Amino acid sequence: MHGPGSSGWLLVTLCAATGAYCLLRMRSSVEEQRRAAAGEALMGFGMAAMAVPTAVFTPPAWAWPLWAAVFGAAGVHGLWAARASARHLHHVVGAGAMVYMAVVMAAGPRAAHHSTTAGIPALTAALLLYFTAYVLVTGARLVPVPAVAGGPGSTGPRTGPGAGWGDRPELARACRLSMGIAMVAMLLTM
């Protein structure tokens, strides 16, 4: 997962900035947004830590099983939350991808390159397909659509005491999009 220095640091920066923004989103007055932001902050900071170039820091052997346990617990929590809303299934897939990457990295560099006849392990390929599709769909949702005067969606941005910048859905989508892009980049280096 640890690629060249400059791209590794860009990935670390993207993931850490996303995690920091998600921490700020935890100040929302809407409890569901706070919960989602907490999980996304964990994912952002975890991805940032896993992306640090090995030339700078090589994690000790015990770090990878710890990451697998942390993200395994996050996946179980996501499954529990998915009982109420299927939106949490994406968090389960993300946590599962992090567990998978931690397990592969714990097994060593030779396991990371154990491949099928196509050259890419089947689980890596499936995760790449999922996150690529997720990035494309989420990116398309961020593209502004012109509103018809007087029609739905023409009321402008939300205002009021409960609609702070942390509660804006387009910023939350942009946060998820950046983490999806980072996940694709991390999976490509596996």
Rank of each mutant, 00 (worst) to 15 (best):
P65L: 00
V137M: 09
S85Q: 10
I181G: 01
H90M: 12
W62L: 03
G139F: 00
M183C: 02
G78H: 06
V12F: 14
G164W: 07
S7V: 13
A74W: 08
T58H: 09
E40K: 11
V92W: 05
P144Y: 01
P146Y: 00
H113Q: 09
T58Q: 12
A95H: 07
G19A: 01
T155H: 09
R176P: 13
L66I: 05
G46P: 09
F45R: 06
V99P: 08
H90Q: 11
G46M: 06
Y21A: 15
A41V: 04
A84H: 12
M101H: 02
L10P: 11
T13S: 15
P161F: 10
T189C: 11
A125L: 12
C15N: 09
A61W: 14
A38C: 11
A174T: 07
H113Y: 12
R110D: 14
A107Y: 05
E170F: 03
A111S: 14
R168S: 11
T116Y: 01
W62R: 04
G151V: 03
A20I: 03
M26K: 01
M186V: 04
T132L: 05
A69I: 05
V76S: 01
W80N: 00
A149I: 12
P152N: 12
H114Y: 11
S178E: 07
S154R: 02
V76Y: 10
T132Q: 08
T124I: 01
S28L: 03
Y100T: 04
S7W: 15
G3I: 15
A149N: 12
M186L: 10
A182Y: 07
G75L: 08
G8I: 06
M47Y: 06
G151N: 09
P144M: 00
R168C: 13
L24R: 04
A133I: 13
P169C: 07
A81E: 13
V70E: 07
M183I: 02
T159K: 11
R173M: 15
A51N: 02
G150W: 05
Y21Q: 14
V184R: 00
A107C: 02
A51K: 02
A82K: 02
G160I: 06
H90W: 13
M179W: 11
L10D: 10
A147H: 08
R35M: 05
L127H: 07
I181W: 00
A172Q: 11
G46R: 03
A125M: 11
V99D: 04
A95R: 04
A182N: 06
L187G: 02
G119Y: 09
T58C: 09
G180L: 05
P157W: 07
A111C: 10
A182W: 05
F71P: 00
G5R: 11
L187N: 04
P59Q: 02
A16P: 13
V70I: 12
S85D: 15
T117E: 09
W80G: 00
A185L: 06
G75V: 01
R27W: 09
C22G: 01
R25C: 07
G39D: 10
S29G: 14
H88T: 01
L129M: 10
W80M: 01
T132G: 14
G19S: 03
M47A: 10
V56W: 13
R110P: 03
L177W: 13
S85H: 11
